[in-house]
Deep mutational scan, measured.
Amino acid sequence: MAAGGDHGSPDSYRSPLASRYASPEMCFVFSDRYKFRTWRQLWLWLAEAEQTLGLPITDEQIQEMKSNLENIDFKMAAEEEKRLRHDVMAHVHTFGHCCPKAAGIIHLGATSCYVGDNTDLIILRNALDLLLPKLARVISRLADFAKERASLPTLGFTHFQPAQLTTVGKRCCLWIQDLCMDLQNLKRVRDDLRFRGVKGTTGTQASFLQLFEGDDHKVEQLDKMVTEKAGFKRAFIITGQTYTRKVDIEVLSVLASLGASVHKICTDIRLLANLKEMEEPFEKQQIGSSAMPYKRNPMRSERCCSLARHLMTLVMDPLQTASVQWFERTLDDSANRRICLAEAFLTADTILNTLQNISEGLVVYPKVIERRIRQELPFMATENIIMAMVKAGGSRQDCHEKIRVLSQQAASVVKQEGGDNDLIERIQVDAYFSPIHSQLDHLLDPSSFTGRASQQVQRFLEEEVYPLLKPYESVMKVKAELCL
């Protein structure tokens, strides 16, 4: 049975990233139509530049190519590739079939990587351009969430054990800070992308030097003109047959890092959902379990974690691919890159769409948070109580021993009897502590235990987050809708 299948058929496997999760716009960027249309555009740009620099290419040939950029006979191309065992030459023939007058000058002087690699770089750039505003929107939604809850005390956790208090907004800023680093890295790697350009079979530009009869300047002009037509500021000066596969490492490393950030955020949300302090959106008709109707599973956060793990592992592909590119190139890269580049971007696209949807509907339960604080705060307040007693004339050592005994009794009630923490009640009825009984409410005010959390939130948002989001103001209103 021949390899390949009808990918629109229910009898043929289709990647869930495309069929179930990723956005239509990201799927289109990695589609065959987008790819092969870009090949034709690159052939047109090459012909236009070659004509401008004096090669015998007519206006009629150029116009014929322009008129057929979208006229792609995919069936013919597939048949040609089956016959020739070469995808680029299959599309040269297919393009030439609908451009008979231009057929002889299509791909003039070029090698397969002229269309293959340059198209990949265009796709990487455009895919990054799709991700950047999506990530900015996630940051914006979380920034709104953090600002609104900047002063809401909550129990902090280290080692997932109760620690000092923080605020809900401050905790959210930990998430935002990681995503801001990801946004900066995505922008950097996007701006650092260079075009492969017009380089020939081993990167020496020998074929173009021959076409222009040894004119170095025209060869350099050709490279520059096509690079500018493709919208790049610069091209690699040095290439082998391909652009260095280190570029793929750079791009997928940034995406993998984004995956790590999203995994951490969504894990926190899942843990908070278990504590009943916070939940992701839950639709009115949504079913959490087929057997347990009360369940409210954090399905979206779980999906993000599941896909983020996949995204983090994909960076190993370009690392290994770059390491086995012998001399000017081997074909070890080809099949692998067809999979890992598309999957990385479709996965990143999915987790950003999902995280935006989550961040637009996060639900906080202040009463649950308050109750958990009441359970733990008495123990945390013991040092403040000791200091207040010393100020009232008591002995630190005597007070410490009193607190120690009462704390152990209260802990026994919590752990052995399943009761509430009654340390404060014990202190309130103990005559030894009568000098500070009137101060206990103040000493137990949760806001006095959150330090500068709310001020940190305000400063972080104003100095770091809002300036970073400013270039994306025009796209901030787009909502994230999930079908599944």
Rank of each mutant, 00 (worst) to 15 (best):
L423D: 07
A381V: 13
R309Q: 01
P378L: 05
L272V: 12
L482V: 12
G361F: 14
E81C: 00
L341S: 15
D117C: 09
R396I: 03
L135Y: 05
V88Q: 05
E462W: 12
E376F: 05
L222R: 01
H159M: 01
A388C: 05
F327V: 10
T119S: 14
H97Y: 13
E376R: 01
N357A: 11
L331Q: 06
A431P: 13
V262S: 14
C172Y: 11
S112A: 02
H7S: 12
T58Y: 12
F236P: 06
R188S: 04
V88L: 10
L469G: 03
K134M: 05
L311E: 03
C304V: 15
I287P: 02
M292A: 01
A3L: 10
A102T: 09
R396N: 06
L179R: 03
T154A: 12
H107Q: 01
L124A: 11
V138T: 09
S434D: 12
A22Y: 09
I139S: 10
Q177A: 11
S334V: 07
R83Y: 13
Q184N: 09
M380R: 03
Q164D: 00
P133E: 09
H93K: 14
I106D: 00
H263D: 01
F30S: 02
D178F: 00
G54N: 09
V198E: 03
L131G: 05
S151K: 14
V198C: 15
S448L: 14
T350R: 03
L311P: 04
P24H: 08
Q241E: 01
Y114A: 00
F30R: 01
K295H: 00
T166I: 07
S407I: 03
P56D: 13
A78M: 10
L258C: 09
M292S: 01
P153N: 03
L186W: 06
R245P: 01
A335L: 02
A348V: 14
S290L: 02
T158R: 00
D178W: 00
S151N: 13
I72T: 09
C305W: 02
D430Y: 04
L406C: 09
F28E: 09
A110R: 02
E220W: 11
R190T: 11
H93I: 12
E481A: 15
P298R: 02
G8R: 15
R245N: 01
A344H: 02
F157Q: 00
Q356R: 04
Q409F: 08
I269G: 02
M26P: 05
S253V: 09
S15A: 15
E464R: 03
S112C: 03
Q161F: 00
L355R: 05
G394C: 13
K224L: 11
L484V: 08
L135P: 02
L255C: 12
Y294E: 00
T52V: 12
A146H: 00
T239W: 01
T313M: 10
T202C: 11
I369E: 06
V88S: 09
V247Q: 13
S306L: 02
H263R: 04
A273S: 13
A348H: 03
Q397K: 05
